[in-house]
Simulated assay, not measured.
Amino acid sequence: MGKLFNSFKFGVIAMAAVVGLSATASAQILTVDDERVEREAAAYKDFNLQTNELRQSILQRRQMVTRGGAIEQQLADLEKRKAIIGNDKYEEEKKKLEQTYVRFQQELAQLEYVFDQLRQEAMVQVERARQPVIRSLLAERDAQVIMMKRLLLGSAAGIDVTTQFIEKLDSELPNVTLNNLPKPAAEAAPAEPKKQ
């Protein structure tokens, strides 16, 4: 899934029901594999589907402006051709590439901001849907706490409720509503400098 919800790693899925949990009580602790939830739950898949074009636009711009990226390579190629094309043509093409670089950097920053806002919007919806799921599983299993599987050093069979968690979450939130999703736009990559 690419860890699109990095900042929302399902936190520690623990309920305030831990109050009353004592060392002598045989507390039932359930586990959920949060990485599997992010791969398989419908809300996460829906988020990825809706934001696919946006993520592709971000990736494209990163490939253009990162160190060693396409624009830097075009500038290096232009530098090699400087003696052949002449100083005036070189300066003209270099200026165009620099302007393209600045434009792509600005667009990348804007797209990343939009993506971050969409991710936060989706996280709020998932968090709201997740609370009744947690309460339901705790009640059904007569348990006190649900923890992320990756936080545990080991676990016994029968305490993993990931499948049930995903099923209930899918029922509670089959998709996410992204109100600020940008409309699809045609991508325009910078033209390669003409070789002479």
Rank of each mutant, 00 (worst) to 15 (best):
L21Q: 11
Q56T: 01
E121R: 04
A76K: 15
K95E: 09
T24D: 13
A42D: 02
V124T: 09
S26L: 10
T100D: 13
E91Q: 15
R128N: 09
A27T: 14
K89H: 14
A70G: 09
A27F: 00
E91W: 11
R61G: 05
E93L: 15
G69D: 02
A83Q: 14
K95N: 09
T100Y: 12
A83M: 08
M123F: 06
N87Q: 15
V102Q: 10
E79A: 15
K80Q: 15
V19K: 14
E91C: 10
Q63P: 03
R62Y: 03
D34S: 15
A42V: 05
E38R: 09
D34W: 12
L21C: 08
F115P: 03
R36Q: 10
I29D: 02
S22K: 14
G86P: 14
Y113N: 13
S26I: 06
K82Y: 08
E38P: 03
Q63V: 01
R128I: 07
E127W: 02
V32C: 08
V37T: 02
T66H: 12
K80V: 09
V126R: 02
A43G: 01
Y101C: 00
S22E: 08
K89W: 13
V114T: 09
A122Q: 05
Q73G: 15
G69W: 04
Y44G: 03
